[in-house]
Amino acid sequence: MPLIQVKDLRVGYNVYEGLLKVLDGINFFVERKEKVGIIGESACGKTTAMKAIMRILAKNSVLMGGKILYDGNDILRMNDTQFTEIRRKKFSMIFQDPSAALNPVFTIRQQFYDIIRYSSNQRMTKDMIHERAVELLKQAALPEPERILDSYPFQLSGGMKQRVNIAMALVSANELLIADEPGTALDVTIEDQILRLLKKIVEERRISIILISHALGTIKHFVDRIYVMYAGTIVESGPTEKVFKNPKHPYTQLLIDSVPKLTGEGVPEGIPGIVPSYLNPPHGCRFVTRCPYAMQVCKEKVPPSYEVEQLHYASCFLYDNGENGKDE
């Protein structure tokens, strides 16, 4: 049984203009000790899916259906006490902007101590808490833990802040770490260091990670399996190597092509068009408005998931060879 299994998750947001239907029945799973990547352009619902797992969706969000199974239990139906235990002992999330994810008016010490204190069932002495904080800061490769603890967030650099966030996440990430574009707000060399650090930590701790990233080049070497999201749907999934070497969905093909290469072929053109409005998304395939291969059927029906090669799935009618597609 997978650690996390998301089944037909539908999430919308109530806004002034109406209901934004963002997540349109997505399915994915994460095995224990597995490194899973999610790619896709901005505003395609990646963060919404992650927030749904941590149950920190905004107040105007609407859960329209689906399940998130953790060890077979639906976390969306757990009571707050049960889920708080999971937040304290099993799952953690690292946010995109390290500056925004730390409370600006408390020292790292104040914040870190509370996180450690409340994640433990036993009463911990101040010395025990301190020892644990120092140990975790060292695991996050931060030198001078004492100085870091006495600092306010604004006194640290972006890279240091993200390491602090990672250290804090490690308090409770005993089974799953969710990293939502952990390097996007940092410069490229720091981003690379942060991703290496995350890889080292999840392998040492033998935990699962869901990594969201725009850096296709980096994610390629990081994760075992990858999901490609477009406009609130998962369009393709499979082992990382297969998806990158042999992308099947037209969106994945265009996405990989739009990464600039160093071989001097000029600047890639990107994908023409924009993500459709979530207020009134297309009835069939959500990529139909931008797809160079769009057919009549794409406008009418939502494409099922076809197994294009072993363990490699694409939701596209191009791979409809008469048999019925397989729903994951």
């Binding site: 927030k51 708080t84 925004a100 994640s119």
Partner: peptide, 26 residues
Amino acid sequence: NKDYTLAEISHGLPERIITLKYLMKP
């Protein structure tokens, strides 16, 4: 709606601590 409040919730801090300490001061 700030990320740091979401982070505090996802660390499993008690609601009382989040409201009366981490939310109130700023």
